[in-house]
Simulated assay, not measured.
Amino acid sequence: MKIIAFAGSNSSTSINKKLVTYVSSYFQGHTIEILDLNDYEMPLFSVDKLAKDGIPQLTLDFAEKIDSSDFLLISLAENNGAYTTAFKNVFDWLSMIPERPVFGNKPMFLLSTSPGARGGASVMEIAKNRMPHSGGKVIETFSLPSFYKSFVEGKGITNSEYATELATKIEKIKDDLLM
């Protein structure tokens, strides 16, 4: 199985990139490619830019990565209760590719984390409701609250309750996808 993983953030110190990288380690034995949104920096979407210049090549490149995968692992950062501008911009450009579901009808595991106690709950709610309408088959979700209290680099999730929840969900995903 080929897995494309990325964080919905362009921060060089993204905690969501740390989370998605950690979670991807549970899928040993599979091909995993971790993308960085900074490698897909596109002009700010507008219909005027679309009409003038067409769809940026980086959009097509990102779509190709999605299409080459069997499974998407996405950790969504939250900014003011919604997607980050970086993620939303990629999403908007992808939605302009004619006759193509944005997320390629791929199964996906949605993650989120934040420094706060809600763990990105607002962006997760938006994504759970939006992704099925955009070619994403959400098979599971996981939010990690209080990142700096619940996660240690090199160790992973240190809160046993959250670690168990994540492990259980990953086993379910493996059972569902590899049957």
Rank of each mutant, 00 (worst) to 15 (best):
P115S: 12
E140M: 10
K106S: 04
A117E: 13
E64W: 04
R118Q: 15
S25D: 11
S11W: 03
L73M: 01
P98C: 00
M42V: 07
G154R: 08
L35P: 01
Y162A: 04
T59A: 10
T158E: 10
D176Y: 12
Y22L: 08
F103M: 10
V102L: 04
G120A: 09
E99F: 12
N80K: 13
L60H: 12
P43T: 02
P101N: 08
M108H: 09
L177K: 02
K18W: 07
K49N: 13
P101C: 05
R130M: 15
M108K: 05
S112W: 00
F91Q: 04
T21N: 11
N38S: 13
S150Y: 10
G81W: 06
V23E: 02
F142H: 02
L35Y: 09
R118D: 13
D61L: 10
T59E: 02
H133I: 12
F109E: 01
L144P: 05
N159K: 06
A63F: 07
L58Q: 12
A163I: 08
L178A: 04
D39F: 07
Q28H: 12
D39P: 03
G54E: 09
T31Q: 15
K52S: 14
T168G: 03
H133P: 06
G29S: 05
A51T: 12
L73K: 00
L76I: 07
H133E: 12
Y26F: 15
K172S: 14
G136V: 00
A167L: 06
K169Q: 09
M179F: 12
V90G: 00
T84A: 05
L177W: 08
P56V: 01
K2V: 06
N129Y: 12
A77R: 00
L44Q: 11
T21S: 15
I3E: 04
L110P: 07
S112C: 08
L44S: 10
M96G: 02
H133M: 14
M108R: 01
K137L: 14
S150A: 14
L60R: 12
F87D: 04
S68N: 11
L177T: 08
E171L: 14
A7L: 09
S14W: 05
S9F: 05
G156H: 06
T31L: 11
K106N: 06
K149N: 15
H30E: 12
S9C: 03
L73T: 00
V90M: 05
I66M: 06
E125D: 15
I173P: 00
K128V: 14
R118K: 15
L37T: 04
S14V: 05
A163W: 07
N129V: 11
P107I: 04
D92S: 07
E140L: 02
F142W: 08
D53F: 10
L73A: 01
D61K: 13
